[in-house]
Deep mutational scan, measured.
Amino acid sequence: CHSECLGNCSQPDDPTKCVACRNFYLDGRCVETCPPPYYHFQDWRCVNFSFCQDLHHKCKNSRRQGCHQYVIHNNKCIPECPSGYTMNSSNLLCTPCLGPCPKVCHLLEGEKTIDSVTSAQELRGCTVINGSLIINIRGGNNLAAELEANLGLIEEISGYLKIRRSYALVSLSFFRKLRLIRGETLEIGNYSFYALDNQNLRQLWDWSKHNLTITQGKLFFHYNPKLCLSEIHKMEEVSGTKGRQERNDIALKTNGDQASCENELLKFSYIRTSFDKILLRWEPYWPPDFRDLLGFMLFYKEAPYQNVTEFDGQDACGSNSWTVVDIDPPLRSNDPKSQNHPGWLMRGLKPWTQYAIFVKTLVTFSDERRTYGAKSDIIYVQTDATNPSVPLDPISVSNSSSQIILKWKPPSDPNGNITHYLVFWERQAEDSELFELDYCLKGLKLPSRTWSPPFESEDSQKHNQSEYEDSAGECCSCPKTDSQILKELEESSFRKTFEDYLHNVVFVPRKT
């Protein structure tokens, strides 16, 4: 048989008469490798580009789960590009990614509803959504962080984005990388972005840091009482949809009607710091009717980097990364020049730590249904340095008659930039024990000054392991946590139920 035959053949030295091919099969003959313009397919066939392209389009058009959109890589027609490569849609070739590779997620039936953290986790790592997304989240724990972890990498949506009755959302900033909504599939009414009845939605994105392009379709905003109209108009300008909307697409009466839409800028007039305090004062603000001013709200939190936005980490279910302080308005003076500047002394802060701070007014709604208010920009203030805590785990070892090696770990709280350490030492008198000992005694162990690591005695271990207080009263049991108490109650309830079950099964009433 021919060298490319495997198993047997019907005619000697003829690659077209093989029972099976050793390498690849091409047009009725066995070959060692697939010549151009053919590609290896499933490690035994040679196919042309049209064959591989037909497989790709067949799966793409069917949208069946589990099928493969075949691509070409290293002269092979394979189910998908290997790690580190992405497909070129024009020629199906796998090309190296520039940075992290995109991950295209194809949605069944063309859309997916995100109504819980669990459903959001199914899209973790996706960068391109081939379909439409509907966000409908009523509640949950730590929602802002969970949504950002699972949806934060999405850069492109081919269909539309719909935010509907998501009472738990305060902001859409968890879509931190969303840059493009194509609108290839539109919501009824030709809408590519749809926001309806979101009672706590206050911000779409921080438009000073976020760009969003909507290729096709219109915007729809109705019944978002805490979303200011200025935020919607800003989205029109940034996304390129200005002029597409009709009169009733953006409701003037049901958007922002319960919001404090600040239209003035508060400026800080005085800032002073110490290692654990920050004193702030800002310019006074009074609405047209000074009785509408209820006070100020001061927001602050630790910020290692200057990239904080107002609604980071917030949701309507209680999660809030900001510390909020309510401040009463100052006494009002008739003389504008003698107006008191409101302020606040922030206490209990960490030394040498940068804080993000902003302040906003708290006002009631005027009778004319106009909203007044003022808010400052987010500023960054760093507390002063102070003395560091003591170095940890000092170790001293003498390696000769004239040297001592000293080692330690950095302090747990540096409280500033540590530039150097101060080492103090003092000579001590020799131990009298060394002169009084009889060095001729056998088995004498000389006193040693070398360091030995501390260890816990058996008594201390027994005390720590004991669940009861000892007789001397030195140790006591740790208080039980809520989960331990709940577990004990469940076990007790189970024992009672099981005992009742045994009584009912074992003891049967005697027939009379």
Rank of each mutant, 00 (worst) to 15 (best):
L219P: 11
H233P: 08
M297P: 01
Q245R: 13
T118K: 12
N200L: 09
G139E: 02
A195C: 14
I134A: 05
S132Q: 07
D315E: 15
F174P: 07
K350P: 05
L279D: 07
D312K: 05
Q203I: 06
E302F: 12
C317W: 12
K218C: 15
K177D: 15
W352H: 13
F299T: 02
L331T: 14
I188S: 06
K337F: 11
K407S: 14
L349P: 01
D249R: 05
E302Q: 11
Q245S: 12
V324C: 11
F290S: 05
R369S: 12
Y300M: 12
A145I: 12
N334S: 13
I271D: 02
A259I: 12
K375Y: 00
C228N: 08
L252Q: 12
S119F: 02
S173P: 04
L172R: 04
L219W: 05
R291L: 02
I214C: 15
P351D: 03
D393E: 05
I378M: 14
R124S: 07
S321L: 08
S333G: 09
L229F: 15
T127C: 12
L280T: 13
Q382M: 15
E236V: 11
S396P: 09
K177S: 12
T383C: 06
E264G: 04
P391H: 01
I154E: 03
G152T: 01
N150R: 04
K360V: 03
W282R: 00
G139Y: 01
K177R: 10
K112P: 03
A374T: 04
Y305N: 00
G256L: 05
F174D: 02
F175N: 03
E237C: 15
D326M: 04
C228M: 00
V128H: 06
D328S: 13
C228I: 02
S400C: 09
H222K: 00
L294S: 06
T273A: 04
I154R: 01
R369Y: 15
G343D: 13
P394S: 12
P391L: 04
F311P: 09
F358A: 11
R124Q: 03
I278L: 02
Q339R: 09
P288Y: 14
K112T: 08
F221G: 05
A120Q: 06
Q339F: 11
N320V: 04
W282N: 01
F365P: 13
D377T: 08
N211K: 08
F175M: 10
M346Q: 14
S319R: 11
G313H: 14
I129N: 00
S376D: 02
L201D: 01
R176D: 07
Q216R: 06
S192F: 03
L186M: 13
K226Y: 05
T323S: 11
I278T: 13
K209H: 15
W408S: 00
N190E: 03
P287D: 02
M235V: 11
F175Y: 04
K267G: 05
E187V: 11
